[in-house]
Amino acid sequence: MHTEYVIRGALLALLNDRAKYGYQLKSEFEASTGSAWALNIGQVYSTLKRMERDGVVLGLGQDEEGRPRYQLTAEGREELAGWLSAAVERSVSSRDEVTMKVLMAAATGAGDPTLCIAVQREVSMQTLQTATVARDTATSLADRLHLERLIVSCTAELRWLDIAEEALAGGRTPAPGEVGDTTTTTLRTEDLHG
């Protein structure tokens, strides 16, 4: 439920200056994060209800137009400060699909791992090309920073593909006197884990 956790943090931040109602939070959320993330209004209210239950926001009842408004509590302020100041731990999933495809192709011989790499490289490069143009014409800070992150992750993927390709190329050269390449491929697969 990572997404929910991020939405909760964002709602706390948006309520920091004054009490607001759901649609206001939805549109401010979208304005400050860019066009990339559209929030569902139902999700906004269900999150607010949960936050009210946890005591981090307080329901103020409906305003003259019948819109339920919420304000931050002292506890909410504390949670917000904690959320903003805590570092996010990163980890690389050992279940990454691209990694698994390359490893499975290499380990089983069911497919050509270099083909998996070439196909992925083309798509990542095209995304990078498109994202570069979009970044250079981005009109909001939010869009630009989202795109910069996409660019960095495409670049990282392309770099990984090069590394994997080289590791596999090393693995496919049979040792002197060796006929098949099954053994070396298996060895390389282990190298990739290491």
Binding site: S35, A36, A118, R121, M125, Q126, T127, T130, A138
Partner: peptide
Amino acid sequence: DQITERPSAPASVAELL
């Protein structure tokens, strides 16, 4: 080894992200 052409249709930010 490989040639990659930029896709001709520009993608919107929402499509990319």
